[in-house]
């Protein structure tokens, strides 16, 4: 890996920025250079929220992500907004529980995963983002599950630590249900 550029996009409240943060944090734990850039301001008020994540083994010169190799989307507008940007042969992760349109391009590796349905099966609809993250790290190996888990341990505040087992389960579930 020289440099991986990723986009995570959905509605505010779907844990979009958090997934990006986890990726960047795990990347940092692995000794890589990382960069996380959120959308901000009025865009966040009810509209789509997205973040850019870069993980590289050398200093990140330009932090701008205009051609991501990995895109994860949680709603239709996000797919429409970012599909064209993906590099040929790149990965497109779709929460197919929420996205009901089809990608137009045929030169991408498309992963349609009903993450919200799976999350409900695990008993908490909020871990859809973590399931999709599991699929992402299984397919791209951009960071290891161990470091995502370590990142979760370091990031989650004390009162949310009880969510750790569920998150770990969701990660494993996403990894083994990659399509």
């Amino acid at each position: 890996m020289e440099r991986s550029d990723m986009v995570i996009s959905g509605f505010g409240g779907q844990g979009v920025l958090f997934v990006g943060f986890l990726l960047a944090y795990a990347g940092m734990l692995e000794g890589n250079y990382v960069c996380w850039i959120p959308s901000y301001g009025v865009e966040m008020r009810g509209g789509t929220a997205h973040c850019f994540v870069t993980i590289a083994n050398k200093e990140v010169s330009s932090p701008i992500v205009d051609r991501p190799s990995v895109v994860m989307v949680f709603n239709n507008p996000s797919l429409e907004k970012f599909e064209t940007a993906v590099t040929p042969g790149g990965h497109l992760f779709i929460n197919s529980s929420l996205v009901d349109i089809e990608p137009k391009r045929s030169d991408l590796i498309v992963h349609r995963i009903p993450a919200s349905d799976y999350a409900n099966e695990l008993g908490n609809s909020k871990v859809a983002n973590i399931i999709l993250l599991g699929a992402l790290i299984q397919a791209t190996e951009v960071v290891s599950i161990d470091n995502i888990y370590l990142a979760l341990q370091e990031i989650l505040p004390e009162k949310k630590k009880k969510m750790l087992p569920l998150n770990y389960e969701a990660l494993k579930f996403g990894m083994s249900n990659l399509v």
Binding site: F21, A24, M28, Y33, V34, C35, W36, I37, P38, Y40, V60, P63
Partner: peptide, 10 residues
């Protein structure tokens, strides 16, 4: 600038 203020790096 807004980009630098909002972005995260280690």
């Amino acid at each position: 600038d807004g980009f630098l203020g909002q972005m995260m790096e280690s």
